[in-house]
């Protein structure tokens, strides 16, 4: 077993030289570029992921904006519709009111006209009655002068005519 655990100066020297050479050579030629590119790739991947996240966030933000816009538009539409409806209603009631007023006015004026006509008719009738009365009175006066009997009959005829009227 002693051969296993003994340390030979020559082997130690070779081991030191070869290990240090391989360490320095690989550090320059291999580990440097390899670790560098690994780092770059890791950074690239991290960047790509970050970018994707950002894009997704942007998208979500845009979508939220769109929805907000849509919501606003819908609200606006509702408001406009409501206003239009109110305006329409108002116009309708106003028109109705106006028509009513017009009708009322026309009715009242017609009523007044009728009243006036009636008054005029009554006045006219009164005039005619007065005229007739004067004519009767005139005829009576003339009959009286000629015959009493006839006067009586005429009187009766006239009163009947009056009562008919």
């Amino acid at each position: 077993m002693e051969g296993l655990l003994s340390v030979s100066i020559g082997t130690v020297a070779w081991a030191t030289i070869s290990f240090l050479i391989v360490l320095f050579l690989l550090r320059k030629l291999a580990w440097g570029p390899i670790v560098q590119s690994l780092k770059e790739r890791e950074e690239g991947i991290a960047n790509a992921i970050r970018e994707a996240d950002r894009a997704r966030e942007e998208m979500a933000r845009l979508q939220a904006g769109n929805e907000e816009l849509l919501r606003q538009a819908r609200e606006e539409r509702d408001v406009i519709l409501r206003e239009a409806k109110a305006v329409g209603e108002k116009m309708r009631t106003e028109a109705q009111q106006r028509a009513q007023n017009e009708a009322d006015r026309m009715i009242s004026s017609a009523r007044q006209e009728i009243d006036n006509q009636k008054k005029a008719a009554i006045a006219d009738l009164k005039n005619q009655v007065a005229q007739l009365s004067i004519e009767i009175a005139e005829k009576l006066v003339r009959e009286k002068l000629s015959d009493g009997d006839r006067q009586k009959a005429l009187n009766q005829a006239l009163t009947g005519e009056f009562s008919k009227n």
Partner: peptide
């Protein structure tokens, strides 16, 4: 003082050569 290229030293040099060739080629592909 024995500085011979013994079996172990030869094996070590072999490993060193393999490592340099292997990792140089890998570094190049990186």
């Amino acid at each position: 003082i024995d500085f011979s290229i013994t079996k172990t030293v030869f094996g070590m040099l072999l490993v060193v050569c393999i490592m340099i060739l292997l990792f140089r080629s890998i570094a190049k592909s990186y």
